[in-house]
Design a protein around this nucleic acid. Structure first.
Lengths: 227, 227
DNA sequence: GCGACATTGTACGAAACAGTTAGTTTAGTC
DNA sequence: GACTAAACTAACTGTTTCGTACAATGTCGC
């Protein structure tokens, strides 16, 4: 429990150190990601992160240079993981309306499942995006999300169910807004309005609202089905 | 420049202290609000706040008890100021569609003009709303926003232009999401998509999108005007 | 003009904190 | 098995930062 010494396979009982650079790196990054997401950049404590690690504080400086370097890697890590998850969605064979519906639902659920990512983005925005500036890695994560939405939109316009003149990036912006806010502001919103917006029923309603809202926004009037 | 001693009206030159509890309080709170909004709770420094004040660190502890007490008051202050601003909107005489349009536009602009408030809400959400919990003052700020939107919605339903079955609180949630996100996530969004979402043109487009989106969401199909 | 309480200034203490120094151990190479 | 670069440990340093002790001054009722 208290000892963190990694042992090798020796049978003579002498506690020898086993070297595992990649493992140590990953371990530190995982712990740091949680701590930063929970407490923010200035709120997180290097000593605390080190203590939760299988490794030590010195190793943080060895591998990441310092607190800010570690935070930057944690931020990059959060973006990378979420982008990887997004890539799994495939709507290619679906009708445009169904595809867009699926996309919104997926985004809603995905954001909801990755609160740690949402919190990192919030924290980074609090810091005016200055660390994102320094990261080539994040800029290089080519934004497939836009391609995806653009293709669905084009198909919808071509088949006459979506109206013309909309901007895929703005569409993505709106979908993000509806899905992000639910996670980012749930706490204060729930408290002020005395309702739990994290309950299964509430989430279900909000999710349907989001889908409805986006579909009504892009659809041509005569393509709307209800009301 | 360097001396912060407040002097009274005496002519003999002796530097005597002038007491001004309310002024001191307000001064501290104003400075603290800026610092907390800029740096967050853990990022803000009591010494820094004290230095920017006309007063001293001692006074912060005298009036606010400590860092957390000061933060709580700053949070309450932010909510109060914004709520007061919201109360100025009057849509009573307007047609429901125009009223709702006005409400969304107003919310969009209002959020945009009060970035400090947005940041405080983000920061409070990072802290899981735990300070909001402790504040009766904020809970007591009865949420007139809901009344306002509920009245517009009811009028719209009554006159047949809005569809039935929508929840005013959820409507408020959606409007908030669209308007909040624009301020809260502008930095990261702009950076990742290589576009300035803070430019006048971008804001204008996003604003119109938000209005359009809400109106299309609440309107009955046959009441939609274009496309 | 005095007693009681409210307000303010100065200086300091203790703990928390990021970062470093000085070394040891391991794994692979020749 | 000697050597070396990479991986790792333990203990330490200097500063920052929150918070406080104590004293001094102002205000107001009487």
């Amino acid at each position: 429990m208290t000892k963190k010494i990694k042992r090798n396979g020796k049978t003579d009982g002498t506690p020898t150190r086993v070297q595992d650079p990649e493992g140590t790196r990953r371990d530190i990054l995982e712990v740091a990601s949680k701590e930063f997401a929970l407490n923010g950049l200035s709120g997180a404590r290097i000593d605390e992160i080190a203590a939760r690690t299988k490794s030590s504080k010195r190793m943080i400086y060895y591998y990441f240079g310092g607190k800010e370097g570690l935070y930057l890697r944690a931020l990059e890590n959060a973006y990378r993981m979420v982008r990887e998850g997004e890539a799994k969605l495939d709507t290619e064979g679906m009708a445009p309306v169904d595809a867009l519906k699926r996309l919104v639902e997926f985004t809603f659920d995905h954001h909801h499942q990755h609160e740690e990512f949402i919190r990192m983005v919030m924290i980074e925005n609090i810091h005016h995006g200055q660390y994102l500036d320094r990261s080539e890695a994040i800029r290089d994560l080519n934004v497939t999300a836009i391609d995806h939405i653009a293709r669905i939109y084009q198909r919808g316009v071509a088949s006459g169910v979506f109206r013309r003149g909309l901007d895929p990036v703005e569409l993505h912006w709106q979908i993000s807004a509806l899905c992000f806010f639910n996670v980012s502001n749930r706490r204060t919103f729930s408290k002020i309005f005395g309702r739990d917006f994290g309950s299964a029923e509430a989430l279900d309603r909000l999710r349907r609202n989001a889908v409805d809202m986006v579909l009504r926004f892009v659809s041509r009037r005569d393509a709307l089905q209800n009301d």
